[in-house]
């Protein structure tokens, strides 16, 4: 185990996979200069010359090239500088990458990873802070991956690069500097396998991305109130590990689902609906969702406080399901 930051863990995964497989290559805006906007691609140009492409500002082109290269047997790892910009390449993601295997009756494979730095970071307002996990969960043929810790970041990115199908890989910008222990060398986390980040008896808190850390903080505060909460991190939203989630729900009978994105038609809503459908008779209280209100991300720091959910929101949600 080595302690490293989230972006360092991703970089380690990328370097290891590029050393392992010559078909892995990197493409994106500013990915060489200064080691990339988030330093995830740092060192790739020196270590793997000819396998990293700094592109013009052309997201549809970048992802389109990625689809073609992947169909020709390569494994592109694409960085979209801000997730918000993926909207410029929605045809390439939704109509091309996601549909190719199906439309061709299984002939096509699109082993492409699209890395999506997302969520609020520095205060950059409504076009540089979005999350939109549920947009991609809704599209069959895509896999949606949301690591919450450096270790998960490494293990999930390595699996993503080896996956024969397209992966939308969400990296919350504010977690890039979070540190944690990361296993050395070969460390792979399978998709569709949730992780119980904290065991507890009273309430199941399903937490996505940065809400895992915030829920862990909330758990400490809730201990003082006498509540023992269990935290389940789905890690991949598609495929979704319904089994692990339902197992926890059956144990506690009370559920809070937390994400940073708007909960309206959001990733938390799909999980809440799935639980309501599968575990209704186990529930002792209505399910509560924690997410941002259905508004664009404002600029002012004072306003942002009312949008991004924090540990306190988890605490009050747990109090609601316990009351």
């Amino acid at each position: 185990m080595t302690v490293m930051a989230f972006n360092e863990a991703l970089r380690e995964a990328l370097h290891e996979e590029m050393a392992r497989d010559e078909s892995v290559f990197v493409m994106g805006e500013d990915v060489i200069t200064h080691g990339g906007p988030y330093k995830v691609t740092d060192g790739v140009a020196e270590k793997f010359p000819g396998r990293i492409f700094e592109t013009p500002i052309a997201e549809a082109g970048i992802v389109g090239l990625g689809v073609g290269a992947a169909m020709a047997g390569m494994n592109p790892v694409i960085e979209i500088m801000y997730l918000d910009f993926i909207t410029c390449a929605m045809d390439e993601v939704v109509n091309q990458a996601a549909k190719m295997r199906y439309m061709t009756g299984g002939q096509a494979s699109v082993p492409m990873v699209v890395r999506l730095p997302c969520g609020v970071g520095r205060l950059l307002a409504a076009q540089h802070s979005q999350i939109m996990e549920s947009w991609f969960m809704h599209v069959p043929g895509l896999q949606v991956v949301v690591p919450s810790t450096p270790a998960d970041g490494k293990g999930l990115l390595k699996t993503a690069i080896r996956s024969p199908d397209p992966v939308m890989f969400f990296e919350y910008k504010r977690t890039y500097t979070h540190k944690g222990e990361v296993p050395e060398g070969e460390y792979l986390i399978p998709f569709g396998k949730a992780d119980v980040k904290r065991e507890g008896e009273d309430v199941t808190v399903i937490a996505i991305g940065p809400m895992v850390q915030k829920s862990l903080e909330a758990a400490v505060l809730l201990e003082d109130e006498g509540y023992d909460i269990e935290i389940v991190d789905p890690r991949t939203l598609s495929p979704l590990d319904t089994e692990t989630i339902c197992e926890s729900v059956r144990k506690t009978g009370r559920v809070v689902v937390c994400g940073e994105d708007s909960s309206f038609a959001g990733s938390v809503s799909e999980i809440a609906a799935m639980i309501a459908e599968s575990c209704f008779s186990d529930l002792k209280a209505p399910i509560v969702r924690v997410g941002s209100p259905h508004v664009p991300m404002p600029f002012s720091a004072e306003l942002v406080k009312h949008v991004v959910p924090e540990a306190a929101n988890v605490v009050s949600a747990v109090n609601r399901v316990m009351s």
Partner: peptide, 13 residues
Amino acid sequence: AGIGPTTGTALAS
């Protein structure tokens, strides 16, 4: 929609 992917197969080559 094929123009990008064809440029991508060329990149692969």
